[in-house]
């Protein structure tokens, strides 16, 4: 697949602060790429460099084959952007805003169709300064789509949205993908990255600490799968003695780490053989969120580690 975004050894300094510190990655055309990281990690800085709104200090960046800073005007015709904290003219309504962008880009979007896609039809005629935070975000998304962009940069598009609105935005993102567009997404909702993204990169203190598909990252950085029983600590001791697997007991819960597929059957037979009381077992798998919290926590001198283990 062709490359939409290519970043090599990118860095950005704000005075003495190195906000982005030599990152490299590639986004292929048609992919949804999720860029994750804690507050202040350097996500917005990176996105703004890709959009041609900020100038890189070092390294090289290419978006749709263009240099974003020096070729910004041509690039902007082909990309759609929602900035983090999107703001617009206070007295202008969403319908007028879409018409305005349509005239500027010389496209003829149907404002009502576009606004209903982002679930903003009911506020099409309300002035921007009367919209709620989530409604403003939705207008931002609608405006990002007025020029039929090849690549969309969405900086936290769902922050502050309620669960149904968030899912509506997810649908829009899936549609964009199905139309062959590339989506570069930043988010703090790990679940969102897990359901939407083909590729994920986690950035922390300006460096990429993990990258790949969500599954690759979970496999590489997550703990093994576990079987969890509702049972007394005695069961944990029993299993530990017989199976040679890691068993953890806490709050009348017993977790057994699985190393191989066949381990699950061995554990179940051993539990049955123990004659000890137990109730409903479940399988537990690390999510992207568990991995994220662990990785970031480990780097921040273990401050968050105990939480990640919970």
């Amino acid at each position: 697949m062709a490359t939409a975004i290519e970043v090599q050894n990118l860095s950005k300094e704000y005075g003495p602060l190195r906000a982005v510190d030599g990152i490299s990655f590639r986004v292929r055309v048609g992919e949804v790429f999720a860029f994750l990281g804690p507050n202040g990690a350097g996500k917005t800085t990176t996105v703004e460099i890709l959009e041609g709104l900020r100038r890189a200090t070092g390294g090289s960046v290419s978006v749709l084959g263009l240099d974003p800073w020096s070729d910004a005007y041509r690039l902007h015709l082909r990309i759609g952007v929602i900035p983090q904290d999107f703001r617009f003219f206070e007295k202008i309504t969403p319908r007028e805003a879409v018409q305005y962008y349509g005239s500027l880009f010389h496209t003829k979007p149907d404002p009502d169709e576009l606004l209903s896609r982002v679930q903003l039809s009911d506020k099409a005629s309300s002035r921007f300064d009367t919209l709620s935070g989530g409604q403003k975000q939705k207008l931002g998304l609608a405006l990002a789509l007025t020029n039929d962009p090849e690549t969309c940069f969405l900086d936290e598009p769902t922050t502050g949205l309620d669960p149904t609105a968030r899912r509506a935005i997810w649908r829009v993102i899936r549609t964009l993908k199905s139309e062959g567009r590339t989506v570069f997404l930043t988010t703090h909702y790990l679940e969102e990255a897990e359901v939407l993204a083909d590729q994920v990169a986690i950035i922390h203190h300006g460096r990429i600490i993990a990258a790949g598909t969500p599954n690759e990252i979970i496999t590489a950085h997550g703990r093994p799968g576990r079987l969890r029983f509702q049972a007394p600590p005695a069961l944990a001791e029993y299993l530990r003695a017989r199976l040679g697997l890691t068993v953890v007991s806490m709050d009348s819960r017993v977790d057994v780490e699985l190393r191989e597929k066949t381990d699950a059957l061995r554990v179940l037979s051993a539990v049955e053989a123990s004659g000890l009381p137990w109730q409903n077992f479940t399988t537990v798998q690390d999510t992207l969120e568990d991995v994220f919290v662990r990785l970031v926590g480990e780097m921040d001198d273990g401050a968050l580690k105990s939480e990640a283990d919970g």
């Binding site: 959009e51 910004a72 900035p83």
Partner: peptide
């Protein structure tokens, strides 16, 4: 300050 110029810079205006 509000980023409206930044927003406009993303258009052909």
């Amino acid at each position: 300050k509000e980023g409206i110029f930044r927003e406009l810079s993303l258009t052909p205006l």
